[in-house]
Simulated scan of single mutants.
Amino acid sequence: MRPNKPITDLRAFVRLAFGNIASGVYLAVVAAVTALVVRDLWFVEHPDASFAVLGLIAVAAPTMLVLLAAGELAAGGLVESSWFLWAAFGVSVVLQSLAVGALARLATTSARRRPRPRRG
């Protein structure tokens, strides 16, 4: 067993979740939506400001919906707290970024492994 095995696993996780173009595009979309939601919640005065949170849920779905359902089943009032919403959003974004990176890696490695036709 190599002593650096956990570090390489952590590096692979970080590279898969944050270090490719597909994950970067997803995280850029999430950052843009989050900036719009924060602006709408903090700086705009209108009665429907709380509906801006639906943008966060939409960009982090389906894992966000699973975490919200799990929070509702675990403790009924947990979903209504803002800290749980933001924590579930953060976990959902990381999980989905990891999934997007894994799908991108799967698509690129399978394209590399395809046999090339021989000329002749």
Rank of each mutant, 00 (worst) to 15 (best):
V38Q: 08
A75N: 13
V91H: 06
A32C: 08
V93H: 02
F51Y: 11
T63G: 00
G101P: 05
G19N: 01
L36H: 06
G76T: 10
P117C: 09
A61F: 14
G55N: 12
A111V: 08
R15S: 10
A60E: 02
L68E: 10
A70M: 12
R114F: 07
W83P: 00
A87Y: 00
A102T: 15
R112S: 05
P115Y: 11
P47L: 04
W83E: 09
E72Y: 14
F18E: 02
L41I: 05
A107E: 03
L36F: 05
V37G: 00
G19Y: 01
S82Y: 03
V25H: 01
N20H: 07
S92C: 04
L95N: 09
L65P: 08
P117M: 12
L41S: 03
L54D: 03
G19A: 02
R114G: 11
L65T: 14
L98R: 06
F84R: 14
D48F: 07
L16Q: 06
V100S: 08
T109Q: 10
S92F: 00
F84Q: 08
R112V: 06
L78A: 13
W86Q: 01
L27D: 01
V38K: 12
L27M: 09
G90F: 03
W42Q: 15
W42K: 14
T109S: 15
L65I: 10
V37C: 02
L98F: 10
L16C: 06
G90H: 00
A22G: 10
V38H: 04
A58S: 13
S23L: 01
L103G: 12
A58F: 12
W83H: 12
A107V: 00
A60Y: 02
H46L: 01
L16H: 02
A58R: 13
A49K: 04
V14A: 15
A28K: 00
V93D: 03
